[in-house]
């Protein structure tokens, strides 16, 4: 091998090393940061849904009245049936939920299978009682 050939081989080795370094750099540089927007949006979604749910009027009865009736122990079936119906229509197919009603920070009723997920709440006062609705959303476990 003469001098010229040795120089060309050396150059090729340097080029290969540079390419390997470049590929390794790009592999690490292209790892995307996890976006927080989907979580932020789900949070907006949960709070908006609760607000809309409390105002909803079905068969001449608002859900806020149904929530108050449930608190007063005059029956929670109407509330539960309607909320389940609404949430099944509004939520995506792969979303699971847990709905809870609290009165003065004490749980009155809670239903749904999602125990850990994004939590939203909507408090309101009805006939001088502090009521709070909470909704937890998570992905359905298959």
């Amino acid at each position: 091998m003469d001098n010229g050939q040795a120089e060309v081989v050396g150059l090729m080795v340097i080029v290969i090393i540079l390419i390997v370094i470049g590929v390794i750099y790009l592999r690490f540089a292209s790892i995307k940061e996890i976006s927080s927007y989907p979580e932020l949006r789900t949070n907006i979604e949960v709070n908006n849904l609760l607000r809309a749910l409390v105002k909803l009027k079905i068969e001449n009865m608002t859900m806020s009245d149904a929530l108050y009736d449930c608190y007063r122990d005059t029956g929670c079936d109407y509330l539960r049936n309607n909320i389940e119906d609404v949430l099944e229509s509004v939520l995506k197919l792969d979303e699971d939920y847990r709905f809870t009603l609290l009165a003065d920070d004490v749980e009155v009723i809670g239903f749904g299978n999602c125990n850990k997920g994004l939590l939203g709440s909507f408090p309101f006062v009805k006939h001088e009682v502090y009521l709070e609705t909470r909704l937890t959303l998570c992905r359905k476990q298959l």
Partner: peptide, 20 residues
């Protein structure tokens, strides 16, 4: 597309519905 539920008010019959 991104979306969120909202409360819709119908003044014609003074009703609230759920929208997206």
């Amino acid at each position: 597309k991104i979306s969120t539920p909202i409360s819709l008010y119908y003044p014609e019959n003074n009703e609230y519905k759920i929208g997206r």
